[in-house]
Computed example of a mutant assay.
Amino acid sequence: MSELAQRAQISYERKPNTLHSFFALKFHDGDEDRAKVEAIESALNKAGIEITLMARDVEKWGNADIPAGKTLMKDYAFPAMLQCDCNIIEFSEKGVGLGMNGGFCYASRKPIYVIAKTGSDISTTMANIATEIVFYDKPNDLIEPFTRIVNNFPRVILASQSVFRKQQLIDSSIPFEAIVSNVDETPDKTKSFKNQLAEISMRKAQKVLEMTKARGLRLIVAADQNMVFNNVMYGKPKSISDARNLLIQMRGSEEIYFYTGNAVLLAKNDKILQSINITDISRVSFDNISDEKIDDYLKDDICLSICGGIQMNSPFIHLKEGRLSTAQGMTIEYAKEMMANLTI
């Protein structure tokens, strides 16, 4: 008995200097087309491109059925296309589905790369919506042009390994790669809280700019956060005991502040085209909960990786002023605004 088809699993986090592409071709049943796809995929992998293919990743080469009431294109292919960086269409042989595929990606502002055997006839419509057309004789001919495409593809780079900042990008459906800057994060305590955090976030962004200076257009996003309570700045608790003592002090307060320094750089090679460097503040309240509830909360040592030990999704923490994203770890709205300039 066949299994039921499931949506393709595509992570929004990309490996460094790679792309994830939807891949489409006019597919025929049989091993010949499967071998063709695998040869092309091998070449694309060498160029830094991973692919999602409906025949393999959803239909399991004919061993998974589309549930009643659903269609492959609308319920499986279109959502996958939106999660991918781009669309690669093998157009050596024309097909109605390929036109639907290209039209949807074009309307969704996803770059479309058409590949075809040398001498193939590319329709005027497909040629007009294609970002680039690449002809090839053998699959390995695709490695050089797609290596160039990967190196120059506009992307978001998170200058952090923070699981919370990664989750903010994932929740916003933004594909990204993460590069750790490993800069000195010692604050200049002669400066204000706001200036300290803005400066550290910019250190992170500029270091990643330097690390990626050989690459094309990209948006580098960095942040640094601390919590301020009773005019004292707190980072991540060093132990469960420290976290507990701080939470006991803060419970019942409506004057807990998250200071988040943000640095966003739109850059091409080693040139900064546009930048934002600002510290935002959000104020939260902490319900007057019991010692038992605090101890129950602390059973998960995730509190040791969060400023002040506070998770914003906790039922006893409430945003009172400012943006939720600021309290969560970075003011993601700045990156969203500048992404309008991150185009091919």
Results as ranks from 00 to 15, higher is better:
139 P>A: 14
42 S>K: 15
132 E>T: 12
199 E>K: 06
303 C>S: 07
264 V>H: 02
120 S>W: 09
11 S>A: 15
249 Q>R: 15
212 T>Y: 00
282 S>F: 01
84 C>V: 08
16 P>W: 12
203 R>K: 15
286 F>N: 06
21 S>C: 14
210 E>K: 05
129 I>M: 12
264 V>M: 11
330 M>S: 08
300 D>T: 11
147 T>Q: 12
97 G>E: 11
263 A>D: 02
268 K>S: 11
265 L>Y: 09
14 R>T: 07
141 D>E: 12
163 V>A: 14
82 L>E: 10
336 K>S: 08
66 I>E: 04
102 G>E: 08
247 L>P: 01
239 S>M: 05
135 F>G: 01
113 Y>N: 07
166 K>P: 00
33 D>S: 09
60 K>N: 11
149 I>L: 07
36 K>L: 15
65 D>V: 08
295 D>K: 07
80 A>W: 00
274 Q>G: 02
139 P>N: 15
241 S>C: 10
179 I>V: 10
10 I>D: 03
209 L>M: 09
321 E>P: 01
244 R>V: 00
31 D>T: 14
140 N>S: 13
99 G>H: 14
112 I>F: 04
68 A>F: 07
302 I>V: 09
108 S>Y: 10
93 E>L: 12
196 Q>Y: 04
304 L>I: 12
144 E>G: 06
305 S>H: 12
239 S>L: 05
12 Y>H: 04
292 E>A: 14
27 F>P: 04
331 T>C: 07
67 P>C: 11
46 K>M: 13
258 F>C: 05
265 L>E: 05
195 N>Y: 01
102 G>D: 09
274 Q>M: 13
307 C>R: 01
41 E>P: 04
26 K>A: 10
260 T>R: 02
315 P>M: 08
298 L>P: 06
49 I>V: 10
31 D>A: 12
301 D>W: 00
334 Y>S: 04
178 A>C: 09
344 I>G: 13
70 K>Y: 13
294 I>W: 00
46 K>E: 13
189 K>C: 09
147 T>R: 03
246 L>I: 01
338 M>Q: 14
18 T>G: 07
220 I>N: 03
32 E>V: 10
42 S>L: 15
292 E>Y: 07
336 K>A: 06
142 L>N: 10
194 K>P: 00
161 Q>I: 04
88 I>A: 08
160 S>N: 06
10 I>C: 05
87 N>Q: 12
38 E>Q: 13
48 G>Q: 06
15 K>M: 10
237 P>C: 01
132 E>D: 14
266 L>H: 11
22 F>N: 02
35 A>F: 05
268 K>V: 04
188 D>R: 00
203 R>T: 02
26 K>S: 06
70 K>A: 01
248 I>Y: 09
312 M>A: 04
210 E>T: 09
49 I>Y: 01
125 T>V: 10
75 D>E: 13
120 S>G: 07
24 A>K: 04
236 K>E: 03
300 D>K: 11
269 N>I: 04
335 A>P: 09
189 K>V: 15
40 I>E: 00
67 P>A: 11
140 N>L: 08
188 D>Y: 07
164 F>I: 02
87 N>L: 15
301 D>H: 11
283 R>F: 02
225 Q>V: 05
218 R>E: 04
204 K>S: 01
128 N>I: 03
82 L>P: 00
